[in-house]
Amino acid sequence: MKELKDRIVAGERAAIAKAITLVESSREEDIQQSHELISQLIKSPGHAIRVGFSGPPGVGKSTFIESFGTFLVNKNFKLGVLAIDPSSNFTGGSILGDKTRMSEISKNDNTFIRSTPSRGSLGGIAVGTREAAIILDAAGYDYIFIETVGVGQSEITAANLVDIFTLIVGPGSGDELQGIKKGITEYADLFIVNKNDGDLAAQASKTASDYKSALSFYNKESNTLDTQVVLVSSVENKGMDLVLDAYNQITETNKNSSEFQNRRKNQLSYWLEEEVRNKILLKLDKDREISKKIANEVTKIISGDTGFYTASQAIIDTFLDKNK
């Protein structure tokens, strides 16, 4: 593991890739190894800013990342992209086609682009995405983009992985706005209205001002900037400088107000809690003795030998005793 870690820190592409495979793997030995690796990497973090992108299918997330990513690498930044691809087949296989829309940045020596099938996992985040970001951070990438499928819960889960969370929307009707309104100020640091070009330009500007006025009703906490709205065209590479400016401002403000550090702390605590919860649940699920006890207690509840809540307490006690 030490060797793998060193190779990652040295920025070796193949090592980074293997490490991401480890953290995504469902094989027991891989999971053990990945724990070891991540514990080591977490001790000496890099300086990456992690940015999340979410938005409805087809708004141009990949195309935006291609355009903005090109803008960044031309400024000599190193960019890692973790693309969570929703396409999963009825048989369990999948076609990962993101890279066809990121063909320019894929070629660049200063990028690392990895796609992962979401396999329908909740929140549009794949197993191992958080860990993959840690690996890219340790490898010295300046920006890490996490592109997720934009459905329901995903915004919140994705927002919990990143320093800056971006929602991308298209020149659309007000309906979308209604759906998004709730809670947006909490999670999105930036709204990007894409497709500000050609026939769609007028509609895009209108959408942007609709969002702006909707957002003005929500007061942000004082330690962050108000959510901004930026108009871009990913196909015409317009507005990319505005996006970078916005990110720089957000980062600076958040760092000055300690919001940046607080978020990372909260995310760590969220992650820790999640890990603990998952482990306990897993243990509980696998415990044969507990399943038997549940069955027994059910019989007793039905026959009137015990009460429902007494039974549940008894089961919990047994489980806790066993795992002392």
Partner: peptide
């Protein structure tokens, strides 16, 4: 799981894609 490359890739682009996606 199939990764689909874009048209007109160079061998170098392909190698990078292949390695990064392991």
């Amino acid at each position: 799981d199939i990764d689909m490359g874009p048209l007109f890739q160079s061998p170098k682009d392909v190698a990078k894609d292949a390695i990064e996606n392991d």
